Simulated assay, not measured.
Amino acid sequence: MTTTVERGVAGALDSALPTRFSLTPKTTLTGQLDGAWWPYSRDLTTELPPLVEALDGRLGRITRVMVNPTRWPVVPHKVPATGHTVHVGWFTELDPEKMILLSYTVGRFDLLVIPPGTEPAAAARLLTAAAIPGSVLTAGVLMSDEAATGGRMRDTRSSEDTWENDGGPALPSLRHPSSARG
């Protein structure tokens, strides 16, 4: 289920921008991911509060977040969220495409983090794929598969554009072979 929640946190990039995320529906099937998040920037201080606010009602109070620092230029130790502080840790062993959230009620919650500059169609596919119950695909595999899919789609569009711009396929000669003699 893809969800957008209007941002209402002071200091956010733009409080009118929705928080873009998807969550795996409640089921007995467990998978590698519990959903996905598509932030607007790589600024955790700005991006985390709206996500935590949106998820608090569904997962309980988020107390800790873990990220791989290779995807975040600055990893703050603490980020203020609605009515509490979220502690942020970083681990280079963590899949760089993933974020782990910890809450009192749900425990561990793993999200695919979709890069901010991702094309909307690709992000929509990733938001959907990360929320499939029981999926065995990791965050890194989903991102790799999407890169391959996106490349094939760009190649197809490029071929179609070339075909259209060149007037379609080459037409066979309409002259009769015997008229080709000189």
Rank of each mutant, 00 (worst) to 15 (best):
P73I: 07
I114W: 01
P169H: 06
A10G: 08
G57H: 08
E6Y: 07
G35F: 00
P69L: 04
P133A: 12
T3A: 13
M1A: 13
S41C: 04
R7Y: 03
V136Q: 14
S158P: 00
G117H: 13
L51I: 02
L17R: 11
Q32R: 14
T138H: 02
I62S: 04
M153H: 13
V75H: 01
V141T: 14
D161G: 07
A139S: 09
G8E: 03
G151D: 12
L51A: 03
G11L: 06
A81L: 06
T70K: 11
L127R: 01
P115Q: 08
S103G: 07
P73T: 01
N165C: 09
R154H: 09
P50I: 02
P177F: 11
M1Y: 08
P133V: 05
T19D: 02
L174N: 09
G168T: 06
R154K: 13
L111Y: 02
G107S: 06
T19Q: 01
P76F: 04
T105Q: 14
L101D: 02
R64A: 10
A148I: 11
L174F: 09
P80N: 09
T45I: 04
T105C: 06
D43V: 06
T45Y: 03
G168L: 06
R152W: 04
T128P: 00
V74D: 11
V52W: 04
T2H: 13
I114E: 05
L142G: 03
P73S: 05
P76D: 03
D161K: 11
R61Q: 15
T24L: 03
V52C: 07
H84N: 00
L174H: 07
T85F: 09
I100K: 06
P69T: 06
H87N: 12
E160K: 09
A10S: 13
P169C: 03
V75Q: 01
L23D: 07
L101C: 08
V86L: 03
L127D: 03
K26H: 13
L48D: 02
R20V: 10
I132F: 01
P177D: 10
V141N: 00
M66D: 08
E119D: 15
P39R: 01
D34A: 04
D43R: 09
V65C: 11
A54P: 03
T19V: 15
